[in-house]
Structure formats: structure tokens, C-alpha cells
């Protein structure tokens, strides 16, 4: 909830959302602030095509729920990530399918369009495949919690707000998801990334 990226003189999200209750156009600023970040997050989960729609639907749903926004929360990030998470859930089959493709083939349908050369990747093929296997096998709620924290950069407290669960639930889901990943990664030396780029699984 700390808004370190903004100067203190700038109005916080809560003030913007309150204004948007009377002046709908004010909501455009909420979009400008958060859409790029949310879009990257959704793209990482689903790929570019579904992400475009999910993000548009997220902000529209947020706009429609603005009356229910808790104005004591200065940052809208947990709220927006929560709505996006609900919408991502509708594409669960696509998400899992793409993870399975990555697991099986080492080729990632989600990130490939963004990568020209395979050596631009920061992680080895075998690591990617095993992470994909772990992510695909997680219960959806665990994957949501894990990725909100890991990719969304939300704190446990914020992830709990986003998912509408207790902070203890987030903690235990993330822990279990981490165990799962550790187990999958067990056989891989994650430091040998360069030499493994061309290894086929």
C-alpha cells in the first residue's frame, strides 16, 4: 500500500475513484496508472491475445464497481489485481494448456512472440519446463496467490485483499506452491542456465 512511485502531491487512487463516482471520465487516470502493469501481468499468465480483452474487461468491471471501492485503501492495485484474477480464471484451460505445452516441448507459446533469440531468456529451458509443470499442476487458488506475489509484486497483505481471503491463507498457499516448485526443480541445477539453453528435455 505504500505508493513510493508517486509524489506526495499527486492524488491517490482512492481520491480518483471517489471522483470517478461523480465524473466517470476521471477513471481514465486509474487506467493510465495501472493498465500497463496489469496488462504485463495478465500477458505473462495468458499470452498477449486474451490479455488485451481481460485488461479491458478488468477496468470496465472496476469502473462499474467503483461505488463499492473501500476508499480507505489508497492504492487500487490489490483491487485491480483481484478483478483481473477473477477474469483470468475464465481462461484457466488456456493458461494450463499453454503451461503444458511449455512443459512438454520447452517452447513457450506465451512468451515466444516477445523473444527473438532464445539466449535472451533469463532461465534455462529445463528450468522453464519444470516451473511450467509445477504451475500447471497447482490448484488455481494456489497459482493465483503465488503469481500475485511473484509476478504482481503484491505483498501477502495485498494478495489477501485481492483474493478476498485471510492473509494466513495466502501464506500457506504460497508456501505450498513454493514446495511444489522446489520439488519439480529438484533435479535441475538452476545456475547452469547458459549451457542448457539448447538442451532438449
Amino acid at each position: 500500500m505504500s505508493d513510493t512511485s508517486r509524489t506526495p502531491t499527486e492524488v491517490d487512487d482512492a481520491a480518483l475513484i471517489e471522483r470517478a463516482r461523480r465524473e466517470p471520465e476521471a477513471f481514465a487516470e486509474v487506467f493510465r496508472r495501472h493498465a500497463p502493469e496489469i496488462q504485463r501481468y495478465v500477458t505473462r499468465r495468458l499470452g498477449a491475445d486474451p490479455a488485451e480483452d481481460v485488461v479491458a474487461d478488468t477496468f470496465l468491471a472496476a469502473f462499474r464497481q467503483r461505488e463499492r471501492y473501500d476508499l480507505s485503501r489508497s492504492s487500487a492495485r490489490p483491487w485491480l489485481y483481484g478483478i483481473a484474477t477473477n477474469l483470468i480464471a475464465r481462461h484457466k484451460r488456456i493458461e494450463v494448456h499453454q503451461l503444458r505445452v511449455l512443459e512438454r516441448t520447452g517452447t513457450d507459446p506465451v512468451s515466444d512472440p516477445f523473444t527473438e533469440r532464445s539466449d535472451e531468456r533469463l532461465s534455462a529451458r529445463s528450468v522453464r519446463q519444470r516451473l511450467a509443470a509445477a504451475l500447471a499442476s497447482l490448484p488455481a487458488g494456489h497459482r493465483d496467490a503465488l503469481l500475485l506475489v511473484a509476478w504482481g509484486g503484491l505483498s501477502y497483505q495485498e494478495a489477501a485483499q485481492a483474493l478476498g481471503v485471510r492473509i494466513g491463507t495466502v501464506r500457506s498457499r504460497v508456501n505450498r506452491a513454493r514446495n511444489k516448485m522446489r520439488k519439480e526443480l529438484g533435479g535441475v541445477d538452476p545456475t547452469s542456465s547458459i549451457s542448457e539453453v539448447h538442451v532438449r528435455g
Binding site: A35, P36, V127, A150, L185
Partner: peptide, 28 residues
């Protein structure tokens, strides 16, 4: 494993805001 996960698909960039997307929202 969290660092590994953080790197997964990290090549996906933060997109530039398109004016079209904003107009679409405003129209909606």
C-alpha cells in the same frame, strides 16, 4: 525457486499505453 519463477516469462515487457485502449474504456 522464487527467483527462478521471477525470471519465467520476464522477457514480456511492460506495454506502452495505447490511446486506443483508453478510448475504448471511455467509450465503454
Amino acid at each position: 525457486e522464487m527467483t527462478q519463477l521471477d525470471r519465467l516469462r520476464s522477457e514480456i515487457p511492460t506495454p506502452e499505453l495505447s490511446g486506443a485502449a483508453e478510448r475504448r474504456l471511455l467509450a465503454e
